[in-house]
Each structure stands twice: as C-alpha cells, then as structure tokens.
Design a protein around this nucleic acid. Structure first.
Lengths: 127, 127
DNA sequence: TAATTACCTTCAAGTCTTCGCAGGTATGCA
DNA sequence: TGCATACCTGCGAAGACTTGAAGGTAATTA
C-alpha cells in the first residue's frame, strides 16, 4: 500500500532528475537511438565532463542504459515511454507559449489605447 | 523560432516547479476542485505557511489560480491538462515500481534457493 | 474597538545541485 | 612500452531550494 505521500516523493525524485535543460536534451537526442558521450557533447555544445555527469545520474535512476564497446560508451533510453511523456510536456508548453503571445499582444493593444487617451472606452476599468 | 535549447530550459523550469512532493500532492488534491490553504494544510499534514509558499510558487508559474472570498483564498488548477499529464507520470512510475517488486522478488527467490544449496537447479544463474 | 482567523511575505540557516578542474581508468595503436 | 583517445570520479566554490520563525495584512467576530 504505497501511500500518496510516498508516491509523490518518488515522482518528485524522478522529475528532479529530468528537470535540467541538458538532461532533457539528452533524452530528446537519445529518442532516435543510442549515442556516445562525445556525440552528445557535440550536439548539445556542452563539455563532455558535464554530459558524463548527467548520464551517470540518468543511469543511476535507470532512465538510460550503457553499452560499452571498446573505448566508447553508448547510451540509450532505458524506457522509451518517458521520452514520449516528456514530449507531451513540450506540447503543453508550446500551447501555453502561444496563448502567452496572444495575451502579450492584448496587453500591448490595451496600452496603445491607453496612450491614445481613449478613456471613454467602456472596457478600461481593470485594476 | 524557439530553439530546442530554449524549449528545454522552459520545460526544465516547469518541471522544477512541479518536482516537489508537497506540490505534487497539492496538484493532485486540486484535481477534484478548489481548496483553501487550511484545507490543503490538513490534507497534506504540512504547515500552512509551507503550503502557502508552495501555492505562491505554483501561482507565479500559472499552474494554479487564486480566488479570494472573504478571508479565504481558494486555489484551483489553472490548467487541468497538467494534472492529467502528471498522472501519466505517476502511472509510468507505478508500472516501474511493479516491475521493481517483481525483480526484487526474483532476487529474493534466488537468494532463498542459494541458501538452501539447490545448486542443481537450472535457473540459478542470475547475478 | 480589540481579538481572532486566515493567509502572506521576508529573512536566515541549512541543505542540495551544478559546474569546471584536476587527476584518474580503460582501450587501442605504434 | 609509450602515447592518444574516450570517458569517469572526486573535489570545492557558487548558486538554488527548502524550511520554520517572526512579523506583516485583511476580513470577521465579540
């Protein structure tokens, strides 16, 4: 009987692991197949040391798997679902961003009206 | 043209906001309707000050909305989608936990066999 | 008016994360 | 054997997050 509190702790631990720009990009890059550290380093333009540290963390939480071949370490997603789920998050974010831009425009329009001194306008009593 | 890097930064910022046990539980509680601070404090058994601080953060990122009525502040989810999305994450976690328990049981069984010295058993060569 | 309730904000301490660097290991090649 | 490549690990500084305490505000009640 995993209590809600326990589940929330575990989920937050998982989210914390994912919640880093570099690590999100690593997961995205690995969605299309395994890559080695240097390749990821190039694609993200992030020092290989840092990539390696991120990968160690992702691996510790079993989000990626390591396969060694000679001196190369190939990393791949341990669970493809997670990448899909992440992508849903991106979609959510993009729709929010779109509405942000609309809201920004509305504010801009309102300011424009205000500057022009159109106080006879009935819709000017917000805040 | 939001670059991948920018999107990854924004998504990680959003995930960081969500990635806290208390805040995950707050989002879960609000899924069924608006609640005031003291009600959340009771349900999570977390000091009201802390709940208030979490809510302020969630509100700043527009994950929740505030409606004031007398001295009560009712909070509700600003975007229902996000709760659904979170729930997908929980499901993912639960399936992973289930397989963990299975793996754990397999290890336990193996240890049991090992203790009993049943080395003639063909299925005893996992790690 | 004074007290109470419900909530908010600021602050300081403790903790956790991130990052580059220096120094390691393991593999391959000459 | 020596050297280069590909990667890893430990360390410490800088910064971010979490938390309770103290001291607010605003609305209700006596």
């Amino acid at each position: 009987m995993p209590s809600r509190a326990v589940l929330a702790r575990e989920l937050s631990a998982l989210l914390k692991v994912i919640a880093h720009p570099d690590r999100i990009r690593i997961i995205e890059e690995l969605k299309t197949g395994a890559l080695e550290v240097s390749a990821l380093s190039d694609r993200l333009t992030v020092p290989a040391t840092r990539v390696s540290q991120h990968l160690a963390l992702l691996k510790a939480h079993r989000l990626v798997e390591e396969r060694r071949e000679g001196r190369f370490h190939h990393y791949s997603l341990a669970e493809a679902d997670i990448a899909e789920w992440l992508l849903d998050g991106v979609r959510f974010l993009e729709s929010r961003r779109a509405s942000d831009i609309a809201a920004q425009k509305a504010i801009g329009d309102a300011k424009q009206l205000w500057r022009n001194g159109v106080e006879s306008n009935g819709a000017a009593n917000n805040q």
